Amino acid sequence: MDDQFQYYSRKLQYEIDAADLMHILKTGKKVVIVDARSPEAFLNEHIPGAISFPHRQMYEHTTDVLARDVLYVTYCDGIGCNASTKGALQLARLGFEVRELIGGLDWFKRDGYATEGLLAPTQPVTEVVCAC
């Protein structure tokens, strides 16, 4: 049982879902949402408040302006994309506290949260339905 407990405890230290992300944003905790995809993908659609920081551009000299006292949450398109994993790895390697958004932008939208950008849906979100 100890092995299972440790596994799931550690897993939750590195991942976050959309509902938990939105909850901690509402609590006022310092969080920076990082879109680790290309700048073009970010312009087309992204999570509101996110910053565009492609994983291929994350180096010590490009992250020196980032605050060290916040939680960084990386995301990409979703299951078929690993930019969020690569971004989380780079930020963790550079000493930042980071979690990866489970399911990325795809699951964020499936949970009913609004997005913004050139290709974002224009229909307002009326109810967020989370199954967790």
Rank of each mutant, 00 (worst) to 15 (best):
K11N: 06
K11A: 13
K11V: 11
L12S: 13
L12W: 05
Q13R: 15
E15H: 05
E15P: 00
I16V: 11
I16Y: 14
D17V: 11
A19N: 08
D20G: 08
D20F: 11
L21M: 07
L21W: 11
M22Q: 15
M22T: 15
H23V: 06
L25W: 13
L25C: 10
K26W: 04
K26I: 01
T27M: 11
T27A: 10
T27F: 06
G28N: 04
K29C: 05
K30W: 07
K30C: 10
V31T: 09
V31Y: 09
V32P: 06
V32H: 04
V32C: 14
V32D: 10
I33W: 07
I33P: 08
V34T: 09
D35T: 05
A36F: 03
R37T: 03
S38W: 01
P39D: 01
P39R: 05
E40Q: 13
F42C: 05
F42S: 07
L43S: 14
L43A: 14
N44A: 14
E45Q: 14
E45A: 10
E45R: 14
H46P: 09
I47E: 00
P48D: 07
P48V: 04
G49C: 12
G49W: 12
A50P: 11
A50T: 07
A50L: 05
I51V: 10
I51D: 06
I51H: 09
S52N: 13
P54M: 00
P54A: 01
Q57G: 08
M58E: 04
Y59P: 01
Y59N: 06
Y59C: 03
Y59V: 12
E60K: 15
H61A: 11
H61Q: 15
T62Y: 03
T63F: 13
T63K: 01
D64V: 09
V65E: 15
V65C: 12
L66A: 08
A67M: 12
A67H: 14
D69E: 10
D69W: 14
D69C: 10
V70D: 03
V70E: 15
L71R: 02
L71V: 07
L71H: 07
L71I: 11
Y72N: 01
Y72P: 06
Y72I: 02
Y72H: 04
V73I: 13
T74H: 03
Y75S: 00
Y75H: 12
Y75K: 01
Y75Q: 01
C76N: 04
C76W: 08
D77K: 14
I79Q: 10
I79V: 13
G80L: 12
C81Y: 15
C81P: 00
A83S: 15
S84N: 08
S84K: 09
K86D: 07
G87N: 03
A88F: 03
Q90K: 15
L91E: 00
A92Q: 09
R93E: 13
R93Y: 08
L94I: 03
L94R: 07
F96G: 00
E97R: 10
V98H: 02
V98S: 02
R99N: 00
L101E: 01
I102L: 11
G103H: 02
L105F: 11
D106H: 11
W107H: 15
F108H: 06
